[in-house]
Structure formats: structure tokens, C-alpha cells
Amino acid sequence: MTKKVTLIGSSHAGAMKYGWDEIGADHPGIDLTYVVSPRDVLTRLSLTKTRVYGAHRDSGLSKQQRKALEARSGGTRFDLKEADVVLLVGTNPDPAFLRHLLGQADVDGLRALGAPTRLSRPAFDAILDDYTARILPTANWRNWDSPQLIYVDTPRRSEMVLEVAEMNRPENPEGYAAIFDMASDRLGAALEAAGIAYLAQPRDTIAENGLSKAEFNVGSSRFQSGRSHSERDTTHMNGAYGVRVWQDILARIA
């Protein structure tokens, strides 16, 4: 019996696509549809109470953006009730938040690098709680009976970021492992409470320093064009990462 899977995602869907290219043939029972948009478009797409997702009247998308969405995904509105499984991939609207925060702030017991701001644990917890609430899918996504909805966590930056020195500033990962784990645990608990299944980043793709292992970042490609990302890109993962995430997804939806 064929299982209809709709993958809604951002540029991080590239890894999933190239991963599926490698293993999809082994899973003929999966009928996969992609609804993929760059982040600036993704944040304008919304879901109705009747679970129709896409560019609604209030989306504010330009004609050009609508056309691009149609070209990428075969439409501008998608009835998610027709799917058996919906995957949200890389839909976190502010994935760089923690790195920005830690670029300005140390945290008691977790990170002490002499940043301008020092956060107590209660303050950090409050900020993390607020961040979790901000990235949680809105009410119409919550407590579905069907289709099965899985929130696939956005991958952490690659450890290559430590060598790239973005913005001419070397990055120090002190505390990243514990902090990103805390954020992941908190998001998972919030999603579960909202009736949304959470798929954390596979543990074996994470380096000891808390960042994604470099091997899952090198050679990453863009979703639509297939062109490689820049060598300095430390955000997007490759097909090998996609394969690894698909293994976890397939185990969940079997």
C-alpha cells in the first residue's frame, strides 16, 4: 500500500532530496511530494483550519514568488489531508538564534568566554523558553489525528564553521553541546505537548563539540538547481545526512 508523504521545508530539504535519491528506490511504497521554499517565502505560507497549506490571500507573496513556488512544488496550495504523513523539515524561522545569543552572551556553568553579557541560568532558561515558543508551529498544526505530522529538527551548523571564521571572527564551541541539547530537549517536549512528533537530529551526526560532523556538510547541494553550496557554507547538510534522517523517519512511519 502506497504511503503519501508530503515534505514541507526550507533549503534544508536539499539534503533530504539527495538522500532520498540514494535510497528512494528501496522504498517503492512511499509517494513523496516536496513543498519547498526559501525561508523568506516559507515564513509567509500558512495553514488553514481545514489543513490547506500554502500561499493564501494574506501571504503577501509576489507574482514571481508564487510562480517560483508553483514551479518547485507543482502548486501554491496543498491539501494536507490527502497525505498520510507530513514532514516539517528545516522550518525553524530563526535557526541562527542560539549562535547569535552565544556570540554576545556567556551562560553560567555552560560557557565562559568573556562575552559582553553574562546570563544566569534562570535568565537563559527564560530566553530558551521564549525561543521554543517562538519556533513552535502555530495552532492549526497541533494535535492532529491524521495525517501523521513529524517535525524534523533543523540540523546544527557544521563543525567546519570553526575553520571558516565567519565574519572574520573565530567561533568557539564551548558549551555548544550542552546548550544545543538543552534547546533540542525543550523543543521536543514542547512539540510533544502540542501533539506534534519530534525527530531530533540523529545523535551520530553530531560531533562532540555539539556541532554537526563535517562529513555531513561537505558537498551539500541546492534543492532545486542541484548546484553545490559554497565551500564556506556550514548551514546545509549533504545527501549522506539526508539518508541518515530518512532512516529515522522511515522507522517512525513504518
Binding site: 530563526d94 538564534f97 547569535h100 545569543l101 554576545q104 552572551a105 559582553p116 553579557t117 553574562r118 544566569s120 534562570p122 535568565a123 527564560a126 530566553i127 521564549d130 517562538r134
Partner: peptide
């Protein structure tokens, strides 16, 4: 602002802790 937080931290949260 010599003890800054990212702009994306809402004022309500920042102010509660004196930021």
C-alpha cells in the same frame, strides 16, 4: 547597551531580567 541581548529576544523577557 553594554550588556546586550540579540534583538530577537523580546523586551518582555529581556526586561524581566534587567536587560
Amino acid at each position: 547597551d553594554n550588556e546586550p541581548l540579540p534583538d530577537t529576544v523580546p523586551d518582555a523577557v529581556a526586561n524581566r531580567f534587567g536587560y
